[in-house]
């Protein structure tokens, strides 16, 4: 099993690598297109600001590579948001893998949403052995709207898509690598896809 974590200079990726290590897998941090293409599983992480992250993807040509990947790809947090059509953050055009736009929470709630919230309406093997209403750790100011490709929803101000899937592409808004045992189960499920 060859797992790679796409390293394009966006945020803290060490904790994802450590999470796989706790599961007994070495995940390689790389931005090398050949390494990424050859992997069995690809993690597309992201923490930080959307437009500068997108810029970094473009500089390395990863914006063209990622949508062409054939193996299971898991976008986490900003990684998932960048896989959408567009995001209001920095008026950024995304990779367009998921047919949904990313909006900002309004100021009727505290922004960012920070902490543990539940995931519901689970509809994928990614959530095998995960019970509905399981808690996941989230930190985000922007969210993907409820849509056809949603495989989990979470409610904060509105009910939004907290996980997405299209073909071999998966995205989660929450941080499985920081979500205790249930989060580890989701990473294990991804490895087993």
């Amino acid at each position: 099993m060859k797992i790679v974590i796409i390293n394009y200079g966006a945020g803290n990726i060490k904790s994802i690598q450590f999470a796989f290590k706790r599961l007994g897998f070495e995940a390689l941090l790389t931005n090398n297109p050949d390494e990424i293409k050859a992997a069995d599983k690809v993690i597309f992480p992201g923490v930080g600001e959307a437009s500068s992250a997108m810029q970094k993807l473009k500089e390395s040509g990863l914006d063209r590579l990622i949508p062409q990947l054939k193996q299971p790809v898991l976008g986490i947090c900003l990684g998932m948001q960048l896989m959408c059509k567009s995001t209001e953050e920095g008026h950024t055009k995304g990779l367009g893998i998921f047919d949904v736009d990313v909006k900002r929470f309004s100021n009727t709630v505290k922004v960012p949403q920070m902490g543990w919230n539940t995931i519901n309406n689970l509809q994928s093997d990614l959530f095998k052995d995960i019970k509905t209403n399981e808690f996941m750790y989230l930190v985000h100011s922007f969210y993907a709207e409820q849509c056809q490709e949603a495989i989990a929803t979470t409610t904060y101000e509105v009910e939004y898509a907290s996980a997405l899937q299209k073909d071999n592409f998966y995205g989660v808004q929450f941080h499985p690598e920081k979500s205790s045992l249930a989060g580890e189960q989701i990473l294990r499920n991804f490895i087993n896809l």
Binding site: G11, N12, K14, S15, F18, A19, K21, R22, Y137, V139, H175, E177, K178, S179, S180, L181, G183, E184
Partner: peptide
Amino acid sequence: EQVNIPFTVGGGISSVEDVDVLLKSGAD
């Protein structure tokens, strides 16, 4: 490496460099 919930590190941080090394070491 060993803990599966988020954590914050504080104390004596005064620069971008200080933060960079902490985040790269895995602080959330």
